[in-house]
């Protein structure tokens, strides 16, 4: 169309604008298309049902799991393990990260060490954890802890370090003591970033849960997936993976909701 007025750039312009409605339309396509594709492939007969179950069979397997195999208990024990490992890691990582991000000597003492340990694969600690802790609940929690803790310490330290110097210095020139600056400036200023760190590390905790349960467990979603493999129940493997994804998505959204509720000043714009 030949028009004298300046055209609004299209959605394919670099960082181009997009209406809210269009955004959700594309998001829906992005979510639904893979399912449709899956359904097409699974029903076409190209792939054996054993390797690629149909969405319908995954759904009925999930229902069966719910009614006869106690899905709720599997999900519950997995959530418990994830939460315990992640919470334990948060409770210890928060104060240590705060100290690293606040005091240079603590940073020098602990940060290089943490940086080193975090590159050690958590999965490789499994034999050691089993030797030291055994194969009961403690070992699963320990593996999740090892997988999340060291990353979390570094992220918390960075969150605290990112508090603008001017905020700290303004408090100093109002006569604030070190304790007051930590309590009234550093913590409240870093809080939104800390909640984001908790949300992200929660996702990692779920990855390590599956690892822990694949190796040493007789309950939980990860264990169910492993057992299904033994019986060639591909539909149950699919169900387990999708369930873990959904639980993760719900938790992630809950954290985002908490973020909006707890920090209205961040989301309020004039």
């Amino acid at each position: 169309m030949a028009s004298i007025s300046l055209a609004r750039p299209g959605i394919w312009a670099i960082r181009g604008p997009m209406s809210q409605r269009r955004y959700w339309l594309f998001a829906a396509i992005g979510l639904i298309a893979p399912i449709v594709l899956w359904w097409l492939v699974a029903n076409s007969g190209w792939v054996e049902k054993v390797f690629m179950p149909t969405p319908g069979s995954v759904w009925s397997r999930t229902a069966l799991w719910w009614t006869e195999d106690n899905l709720l208990q599997d999900a519950g024990i997995s959530m418990y393990r994830v939460t315990a490992g992640w919470l334990l890691s948060a409770v210890i990582a928060m104060p240590i990260g705060l100290l690293i991000g606040t005091f240079r000597p603590v940073q020098a003492l602990l940060e290089p060490l943490t940086d080193f340990v975090r590159y050690m694969p958590a999965v490789a600690f499994i034999p050691l954890v089993m030797l030291w802790i055994g194969i009961d609940e403690g070992s699963k929690v320990a593996i999740i802890f090892i997988g999340t803790f060291f990353q979390m310490v570094l992220m918390v330290a960075e969150d605290v370090r990112r508090v603008p110097a001017a905020q700290i210095e303004a408090a100093q020139t109002m006569g604030a003591t070190r304790m007051e600056i930590i309590q009234l400036v550093l913590l409240p200023s870093a809080k939104p970033a800390l909640v984001d760190t908790l949300r992200i590390t929660m996702g990692w905790a779920w990855t390590y849960l599956v690892v822990a349960e694949l190796v040493a467990a007789n309950s939980g979603l990860g264990y169910a997936i492993l057992k299904a493999q033994r019986f060639l129940q591909t539909d149950k493997i699919f169900a387990g993976i999708i369930l873990i994804g959904l639980i993760g998505l719900v938790i992630d959204q809950l954290f985002r909701l908490l973020h909006r509720r707890a920090f209205p000043w961040m989301h309020k714009k004039s």
Binding site: P164, A166, Q167, E169, A170, T173, M174, G175, V185, P188, S189, K191, F263, W265, M266
Partner: peptide
Amino acid sequence: ADRAMVFQHYSLYPW
């Protein structure tokens, strides 16, 4: 507290 300072920016507490 006897010598208060005003900075160029980022010194207010956004929360």
